[in-house]
Simulated scan of single mutants.
Amino acid sequence: MSETSDFFERLAAACQDPRFSKVRGSVRFDIRDGGRLEQWLLNIDHGQMRVIKSGGPATTVVKVSAQVADAMARGEVNGLAAITRGEIIVDGDLALALRIGRLFPRASGRPDDPDSGA
């Protein structure tokens, strides 16, 4: 299993994140590894999170390579920096995509502080 899959499995097990208590929306991650596409769908409803492996519709779609996604899951790549470099393409609500970036660990291995920037 990839680091990205491990990340989404842990997120699915958590089911809730109080930092997202005022957030409603959905984000689909389209993760490419060569010719293979892996899709994860994250639905957020006021802090309640549901994560499934699915290519279903979402208000925001994040397109990223497997290598960049794994690096983000390890806390080695900042999502905003990757967007700026063109390594991540966001279709839909950019603010939601940036906020979701807080779920990923930082180099210290911890998710971002809710009061810090994306």
Results as ranks from 00 to 15, higher is better:
residue 50 R to Q: 13
residue 14 A to K: 15
residue 58 A to R: 06
residue 80 L to I: 02
residue 38 E to F: 13
residue 109 G to H: 00
residue 13 A to Q: 14
residue 30 D to G: 07
residue 12 A to N: 12
residue 28 R to Y: 00
residue 10 R to A: 05
residue 76 E to C: 05
residue 91 D to R: 15
residue 38 E to R: 14
residue 23 V to D: 04
residue 55 G to Q: 05
residue 6 D to V: 04
residue 17 D to Y: 07
residue 37 L to D: 06
residue 57 P to I: 02
residue 36 R to Y: 13
residue 71 A to E: 04
residue 35 G to H: 02
residue 44 I to F: 00
residue 78 N to E: 03
residue 9 E to K: 06
residue 94 L to K: 08
residue 27 V to Y: 09
residue 93 D to P: 14
residue 77 V to C: 10
residue 111 P to F: 08
residue 18 P to R: 10
residue 46 H to I: 01
residue 68 V to W: 00
residue 4 T to M: 09
residue 70 D to F: 07
residue 107 A to W: 00
residue 23 V to K: 09
residue 88 I to C: 02
residue 71 A to V: 00
residue 73 A to H: 09
residue 93 D to S: 15
residue 35 G to L: 03
residue 61 V to E: 08
residue 24 R to Y: 09
residue 95 A to S: 08
residue 10 R to Q: 10
residue 4 T to F: 13
residue 5 S to C: 08
residue 76 E to G: 12
residue 69 A to P: 00
residue 59 T to Q: 10
residue 50 R to T: 11
residue 10 R to T: 11
residue 16 Q to R: 10
residue 72 M to I: 08
residue 64 V to M: 11
residue 81 A to L: 01
residue 105 P to L: 05
residue 20 F to M: 13
residue 31 I to P: 08
residue 91 D to W: 09
residue 3 E to S: 08
residue 11 L to P: 00
residue 37 L to W: 11
residue 86 G to E: 11
residue 103 L to T: 03
residue 54 S to P: 06
residue 91 D to V: 14
